[in-house]
Structure formats: structure tokens, C-alpha cells
Design a protein around this nucleic acid. Structure first.
Ligand SMILES: [Zn+2]
Ligand SMILES: [Zn+2]
Ligand SMILES: [Zn+2]
Ligand SMILES: [Zn+2]
Lengths: 136, 136
DNA sequence: ATTGTAATGTTATGTTATTACATTGTTGTG
DNA sequence: CACAACAATGTAATAACATAACATTACAAT
């Protein structure tokens, strides 16, 4: 499994705009929501967003949430294993938290090995109700 | 004949057609692929497929793969925990296998509890290369 | 037969993502 | 500088996935 350290090559203008939009959001954003937010900055077409996202995903600064068709800025300081992150998605408030769990990673790796499956990436997205929303 | 493990009400005509399409496929199918396969049976609109899929998902006969926007018939003998199934998706041949792992389920539940997150469903989709494709 | 409800049919539209091609900007080389 | 090579961006069109809104049909209970 490839180690994904946050590559810090200099971002281009569009990549920076998209990254900032995600970093300032308090939840996941869809590509089209980002597009709308950046129309004032000259964005006019989905591809401008998707191209920037591709790069940000590659460099590990952003994650894609498959079950939401949306994107979040990585909140991890030490993103050693970006391909195995666990996301907990609150279905009430929409907030997402990101957890790295070494034991879980190892467990999945063991399961894959037992089936002779070469694991390259794990999508793990938990749905439910977050602590804040439970107590309301 | 032993009863199918998935206890359910009798399926309607459209539900049966969609179920059969998935059961006979050797990999996941998108809703639109199913639609095309069933045009000969009178299907003309996506909604006919999506409505049938909703029911089949509800009754546990079918799973949705979030990272593929596609659907598979459940291949489990023991479908006790449909909301926590692990899928291994081969990126070479497209085949999908389904695994129930009690220890993994418990591990995820523990992680969620530790964050006081009420877990209702876990999407777990592993990507990689299956045994058959590795040896080629 | 009447009525209520589930299932289905139909049209239109909304949302997410990619293909193809044109233009501009930047960098390195002779 | 000139100019080739490549990276980044712009633009238009379309593909792929999903739902909303409303009309009709099938069928069982009274
Ligand atoms: Zn991260
Ligand atoms: Zn919440
Ligand atoms: Zn199953
Ligand atoms: Zn394979």
C-alpha cells in the first residue's frame, strides 16, 4: 500500500481555490457546490473543479466520500494511511469525522490476504448519529 | 427445496425481473445497464428499475456498491448483518465478493462507541486485485 | 359496483462526471 | 530573443446516475 504523505508541491491557482473552499467548509461539499462557490473567482465549468479535485485527491489533501458523492478536506495532521481512513458521517447534521485506526487497517489487510486479494484501497464510511445530535 | 434465507414478501413482476437480471449477472450492474437489459420486457424508464431496486435493497436481496454506483445480488448464505458487509472489488476483472466478518463488525462498533457515534450502517468496499487476476 | 391502495407507466428534470478540443501561460534551450 | 515543449486553463457538449411529479392500471376489500 502506497504511503500517502501530504505532498506539498505548490498548488496552482484553481487548486488553491478549491482547497480553500473545502478547508473552510464545515462539512463535505459536492463538486457542483464548489463550482457555485467559485463562480465569483472565474469558475464556469465543472471540469475546473474536477481537475483541481483530482490533484488534491492525489496529493492526499482531500478525500472523496463515495456514499455522498462529495469531498472533504483532510483533517489529519499525520496522514500516514490515506487509503484506509474511516469516516463517520452523521445523517442528522451532515458533519464528517475522520479516524485512522491501525488495528482496523491490519484486520482488513488480513481479511484480504486470507482471500488472496491484493488490497490497494479501502472505502470505509460509517453512517449514523453523532454525539452532538444524540444529546439534542 | 430449502427456503431462500432472505425471508420476504412475494416480489412483483418488475422486482422479479430486476432481481433475475442481478442474480444472473456475474458482476455488479448499474441501474441503466439493467434498464437496457429489460427493455425487451417492457421497461422504458429508469424509475422502473430504481423502484424495484429500492424494494430489493430494503428486503436485503440486493446490495448497492457506493463506490461503483452499481448493484449486486446478495451472495450470502448467512445474511444476518447486511448493514456491515465487506465487499472486495477486483479492479481488473470487475468481480465482487462479499464477506461477513463478525470481528470486523465488532471492531467498527467499538470505534463508533468510543466516539459516541450511533452506528446504523457501514459501507466497506475494498479495491484491489483478486486471486484469479493476480496469477494471470 | 364502489372504493381504496399498490403497482406501474410516462415525462420531465435534477445531479454528478467525463470527453474532446481550443487557448493561454511557463519554462528551458539554442 | 525565438521558439519548442509542456502544464494549466477555458469552453462546449455530452454521458451517466437519480428523482420529482403526475397519470393510469390492477386488484382486493367492502
Ligand atoms: Zn485524511
Ligand atoms: Zn450530527
Ligand atoms: Zn449480502
Ligand atoms: Zn479479478
Amino acid at each position: 500500500m502506497s504511503e500517502h504523505i501530504h505532498a506539498h508541491e505548490k498548488l496552482t491557482k484553481n487548486q488553491t481555490l478549491v482547497m480553500d473552499a473545502l478547508a473552510n467548509a464545515d462539512g463535505p461539499l459536492s463538486a457542483y457546490t464548489i463550482l457555485d462557490q467559485l463562480r465569483g473567482n472565474g469558475f464556469r465549468a465543472p471540469l475546473q473543479v474536477y481537475r483541481a479535485l483530482d490533484k488534491l485527491l492525489d496529493s492526499g489533501l482531500v478525500h472523496r466520500l463515495e456514499s455522498l458523492n462529495a469531498f472533504v478536506a483532510c483533517r489529519h495532521d499525520d496522514c500516514t494511511d490515506h487509503e484506509q481512513t474511516v469516516f463517520m458521517i452523521c445523517e442528522t447534521c451532515g458533519k464528517v469525522s475522520e479516524i485512522a485506526d491501525k488495528a482496523l487497517t491490519q484486520h482488513l489487510q488480513k481479511m484480504a490476504s486470507a482471500s488472496q486479494f491484493s488490497l490497494t484501497k479501502a472505502t470505509i464510511e460509517l453512517r449514523g448519529r453523532c454525539k452532538a445530535c444524540k444529546t439534542v
